[in-house]
């Protein structure tokens, strides 16, 4: 996605008061306390173990750390995570980070 397209989408979502995840292809993460995490708009599972899960989305990667993590359900672009969540880290692709 080119830069000006991104800026346009950002502007449209702000101007029309549209949800940002729809407009910007960003992952939407809903957590219930620290026991559930519901991730939408993800594009792939990169790593899965019981203490860390890394998920790719269109703008980069996402790392969720925790204890006794389990995937309750996995669909094409959705993921329901269970366990004790400790942290959610965003690894931006543009920064070139990510381990």
């Amino acid at each position: 996605m080119s830069k000006w397209q991104n800026q346009l989408r950002n502007w449209v979502s702000q101007y029309f008061d549209l949800p940002a995840d729809v407009m910007l292809d960003l992952p939407r993460i809903t957590t219930i306390g620290s026991i559930h995490a519901y991730i939408e708009n993800c594009t792939g599972l990169l790593h899965f173990s019981d203490h860390e899960i890394r998920i790719s989305h269109r703008r980069g990667e996402l790392s969720i750390k925790g204890k006794d993590l389990r995937i309750k359900m996995m669909l094409k672009e959705e993921l329901l995570l269970e366990g004790k969540l400790l942290s959610i880290d965003f690894i931006d692709e543009s920064k070139g980070g990510g381990d």
């Binding site: 899965f48 173990s49 019981d50 389990r70 995937i71 309750k72 094409k76």
Partner: peptide, 9 residues
């Protein structure tokens, strides 16, 4: 299009 559930490491 598969559905996975109860995935445990």
């Amino acid at each position: 299009g598969c559905v996975l559930s109860q995935i445990k490491h």
